[in-house]
Design a protein around this nucleic acid. Sequence first.
DNA 1: CGTGCCAGGTGCCAT
DNA 2: ATGGCACTTGGCACG
Lengths: 306, 306
Amino acid sequence: MLPRLLWAVEFIVACGEFVIVFLHTISREAMQAKWIYLPALSCSFRVDMVEVRVSPSLEEAHEELVRAFEARKMVVMVAECSVNYSGRTGSQLGNGERLIVLKEDGCVLVHRGRDYQPVNWQPSGCIFQSQVEKGTLVVKAIRPTPLESLTIVTENMHLLASFHLKDEAAFSLHATEEDMQRAILVQPDLIEAGLKIVDFEKKVAPGFVDIYALDREGNTVVIEIKKDPAGFPAIKQLSEYLKHLQPAPGRRLRPIIVAPSLAKGAQPVVAKMGIEFKQLGLQKAAEVLQSHASSDQKVLKGWLGS
Amino acid sequence: MLPRLLWAVEFIVACGEFVIVFLHTISREAMQAKWIYLPALSCSFRVDMVEVRVSPSLEEAHEELVRAFEARKMVVMVAECSVNYSGRTGSQLGNGERLIVLKEDGCVLVHRGRDYQPVNWQPSGCIFQSQVEKGTLVVKAIRPTPLESLTIVTENMHLLASFHLKDEAAFSLHATEEDMQRAILVQPDLIEAGLKIVDFEKKVAPGFVDIYALDREGNTVVIEIKKDPAGFPAIKQLSEYLKHLQPAPGRRLRPIIVAPSLAKGAQPVVAKMGIEFKQLGLQKAAEVLQSHASSDQKVLKGWLGS
DNA sequence: CGTGCCAGGTGCCAT
DNA sequence: ATGGCACTTGGCACG
């Protein structure tokens, strides 16, 4: 067993099927360091999954960072640092402890103790650099277009972990505005019986009409879909489209807003402008898509082909 | 020294001024566990900063999570998990390895190996729960309003770190749209000589006019500021305001868009609608504010007081 | 590449 | 709480 108080753990690293512990002697007279190799205990534990260093020196951290960048591993750091951003605008953040994440696709997150949003970040596609400079570790993330750079100057590293996340799973988000559109496409009578879809995402001067259709009497139906309660922006958007559309001769133009509800003051305006409102929520749209699970593929393929 | 191959490190914990290493014997016949207490090496290293567990059992992870929640510590996990979200909409994410962050203010981030954005998250103000259930660790983050819940089911925990981030530093972001507004307020001749500011963030029916002023001939100037190239949305916004404003008798209404540039098709529309365009970028605005560093305080105070 | 639009947008501040 | 709006918005689709 370890002679108590004589050795201190410098850091612990998982490597292959071994756990490596790096120890320092405490005695100042005979300072020496040792690596100890220990076999991993559990078979269910992928011991090479996470490489962890507790309170590494900045030189060690730098070396590990370079290795991680080359191996395209994700890096998580808990460090005392200051952060500087320069690009589309610029920002400065004084010294303090933060959680820093560098991902394999070249994005960066700098998180403080609070808030959902990172205080500083860089989107995917950055080039990472690490260097030790005047007793600090300087990590840079440079994004080529638009040119912007994030500089993290670390004085003190508390934790450095690097690893590769194995993650092939699919992510599915239920019920988006696009789902509402698809629900109407596969089942137009959600709006009214006899509706014939003519087009969707139809380009008109100011933008794109969500759905463009004909009712059973040949009137042109223009549908604007909102997943949230529809307010003035939706009304304005729809009315802009109307200016650039006209019905068949002798027919009417029927603007319809499809949304779970109308925003507070919107009802009178909608009425005044001759816009119809059809209630449809995400839930219902999801159910419709579910029930058409097999057939909607065909329908959408048909639309895409046309 | 440690007899090689006889002991394996289960996890390492920083606690007070000691580093605690938990060891298992490898020999199956005489399986036993030991805690070893080692004094921390470096004085500059706040050894109680980060508590780390490499590959803890789910029960241990649960206990540590509960402690961290109670102590309002930040938690970082690398774990194999599946994630379920239900609330404003819903989502499902199958099994895979992810980085999970729980912050002291009750927000959650679930990050995959790529992408700037978290695949799942929860904003601040959530209540955290942890329980071990049928061989899995279930962590829930529930947000009361709007009611939504995030459920993380972990099968395998690779790393669990908990800590409190000491971070009092100020964050300053340079050159925002607000800075452009302030630059014009302290130096109205950025727009044109003789301009007199009357009001800003003036409420009109559809929203707020950025800056409301009079030119030297008494015409009413209505300014809409954009920090990015101004497109049709900016034009629409400004033209909406115009409908609800009128100049002094015998004077004109002069709508002006202030932006670094005009979006491609916007120029003819701006011309046709009688909107003026004045080029101003974030850079220039920042310089102006810099040069007025001392005096702008007074000016802004004046505005705030009025 | 720019332009337009959606997002479980988030965040800030107003009524 | 709801509304209006900026944000280093990010992200996707499309000319």
